[in-house]
């Protein structure tokens, strides 16, 4: 066989092996998490190599225990989920408000310093969170935002605004100028043009940006740990779960139930808007 034929045949087989391998490594950990979350710890210790659930020993006690409030002897995850949802939703709202205005200005308006502003947003994306940690703790404890959900939201807004502006700006630039010019000729103000013409057209991009921001805010761990570790009533799910793992005598399968509760909202949202999210994040990457 020629080199050509050998290579073509090999790669045809290799391709499917590769795809199967990738599917396995990406999906298996989530499957394992889900399975263990329904397994009593005694079963896991008895049978660690089993990768199929044993229907006779399945239990939902793990979930009951993790969701019940502390007073009722549980781990209080229902409360953590409320905190996380509040933080994530407020962050999404504020970030969208701020970044829609910013992205529109950067995409459409000519103003002094536009390029500098653009560069600032890019630089911010690259500033490491760990360098912000200490000054932010000090700054926020001086102005009363330390150990509060509001402080956490503010940090998340600042961390998500640059990428949000980037995603939205790319989309705004694909909307033809002529539509806005027509609206302006009809006597619409800049605000009216934005809300009546641009926003409805940009809805797909706004939704994917919202999803991105929600994901970051829901998943974030470092600042939740720094700001809220001493305030169990304010813990987010990520923080609550990590603190739970430090606790003695908490069965590991309960930890898995907590992990599932932390992961499911993200996977559901991602399932709804996966396509829009990837396209939003990689817009511009295809230009080479």
């Amino acid at each position: 066989m020629s080199r050509y034929a050998v290579e073509v045949k090999t790669f045809r087989v290799l391709k499917w092996v590769t795809i199967a391998f990738f599917l396995f490594i990406t999906v298996f950990p989530f499957y394992y998490m889900l399975m263990l979350s329904f397994t009593p710890i005694s079963e896991l210790l008895r049978n660690p190599w089993r990768i199929w659930p044993d229907l006779s020993t399945l239990t939902v006690d793990t979930y009951a225990s993790v969701l019940r409030s502390r007073d009722e002897g549980g781990q209080g995850f229902a409360g953590f989920m409320r905190n996380s949802a509040l933080v994530a939703l407020v962050t999404v709202f504020i970030t969208l408000l701020v970044s829609i205005l910013g992205a529109y200005a950067v995409a459409r308006l000519t103003f002094t310093g536009r390029r500098q502003v653009n560069a600032l947003f890019l630089a911010v994306y690259l500033f490491p969170a760990i360098v912000l940690a200490i000054p932010l703790v000090i700054l926020f404890s001086k102005i009363g935002l330390y150990q509060s959900l509001a402080g956490l939201m503010l940090v998340y807004v600042a961390q998500t605004v640059p990428v949000s502006i980037y995603m939205l700006r790319n989309y705004f630039e694909t909307i033809p100028d002529s539509l806005e010019e027509a609206a302006a000729l009809d006597g619409a103000s800049r605000g009216q043009t934005l809300t009546k013409v641009v926003l409805p057209l940009a809805m797909p991009s706004i939704m994917s940006t919202a999803l991105y921001v929600f994901m970051i805010a829901w998943n974030e761990f470092l600042f939740a740990l720094l700001f809220l570790a001493a305030k169990p009533g304010l813990w987010t799910v990520s923080l609550g779960l990590s603190q739970l793992s430090n606790g003695i005598e908490v069965p590991k399968t309960i930890l898995m139930a907590g992990s599932v509760l932390l992961t499911v909202p993200i996977i559901v949202l991602y399932g709804i808007a996966e396509r829009a999210l990837t396209e939003g994040l990689t817009a511009g990457a295809d230009k080479g």
């Binding site: 990738f22 599917l23 990406t26 999906v27 950990p29 989530f30 394992y32 998490m33 994901m215 829901w218 998943n219 761990f221 799910v237 990520s238 779960l241 990590s242 793992s245 930890l255 898995m256 907590g258 992990s259 599932v260 932390l262 992961t263 993200i266 996977i267 991602y270 399932g271 996966e274 396509r275 990837t278």
Partner: peptide, 18 residues
């Protein structure tokens, strides 16, 4: 393609514990 992005979108605390 969608499944392959799961490790990236999932919360770090949950996947670290798994």
């Amino acid at each position: 393609r969608a499944l392959m992005l799961l490790p990236y979108v999932a919360p770090v605390v949950a996947v670290a514990f798994v």
